[in-house]
Amino acid sequence: MTNSGKNRNLKRIFSGPFLAFILCGTLVPMGVIAYYGLTDRSGAFTLSNIVAIATRSHAQALGLSLGLALISTIICLLLAFPLGLILKDSKLGRKGFMVFVFILPMWMNFLLRTMAWQVLLERNGIINLALKALGLPLLDIINTPAAVVLGMVYDYLPFMVLPIYNAMIKIDNSLIEAAYDLGAGKTAVLRKVILPLSVPGIVSGITMVFVPSLTTFAISTMLGGGKVNLIGNIIEQEFTVSSNWNLGAGLSLVMMVFIIISMALIEKFDREGEASVI
C-alpha cells in the first residue's frame, strides 16, 4: 500500500516538468492563437479570420500547399520504400552504418542545408557551372515549384526512411521464407507479406513528411524565390509584415484543422493496416 503510494508520488514528481512543459509549451500558446484567431484588432469576437481561408488568394495558396506537400510525400515514399528494402536486406552487418549515413545530414540545421541548395541551384551556381563545363543543358529550376519540391524531399526524406526501415527490420525473416516455401513469387511476397507489415512505418512516415511540407514557409521562401506562395508564407507575412496577428492566427487555426483531418485519415489506414497484420 505505502509502496504504491510512494510510487504514485514519485510518478507525480517526475511527470511535473513534463506537465509544466505541455502547459506552457502547448496549451497556453494554443489558447493564445485561438484568442487572436477568433477576435479582430479591437478584441471583439469574429469568425472572419477563419472564413478568410475561402478568399481567392488564401485558397489558391492552400491548394498549392496541399499539392506540393502531396507530391513531395509521394516522391519520398517512392524513394524510401525500396531504400528500406535495401537496408533490410543488406547482409553486410553494416545496417547501423547505412542508417547513420542517412541521418548524418540531419546533424546540420535544415535551414543551412536548404540555403545550400539555393547556392547549388542558382543560375550561376555550382551545378550549372559543372553542367556548362561538361557541355550539358543547364538546370533551370531555381525559383520554381520544382525547386520547392526538391527542397521538401531533401529535407524530409529521412523522416520517411527511418520509420519504414524500423517497421521492415522488425519483420521476421521466417515469415518471408514461409511465404516462399508455400509457393509465393517475389511480387506476391512483397505485396502480401512485406507491404502489409510495413504499413505502420509507411503511415507514420507519411505523417512526418506531409505535415511539415504542408506548413513550411522557409523552403518556399529560399528555393521559390518569393514566387511560390504557400499558405505558410501567407501566415508568416501576416505576423511579420502586415502586422495582422488576428488573421495570421485565424489561418493557423484552419491549418490545424487540416492537419488533424490528415492525421485522422492516416490513423484510419493505420488501424486497417494493423488489422490486416492479424
Binding site: T55, S57, Q60, A61, G226, N233, I234, V241, S242, N244
Partner: peptide, 18 residues
C-alpha cells in the same frame, strides 16, 4: 493606418498567389 494596410495586404497577396 490599419485599414489601408489591410487593403494593400489583400492586393499584395493576390499578386503573390497568381
Amino acid at each position: 493606418g490599419a485599414d489601408a494596410d489591410d487593403m494593400y495586404s489583400r492586393y499584395w497577396k493576390e499578386y503573390k498567389s497568381k
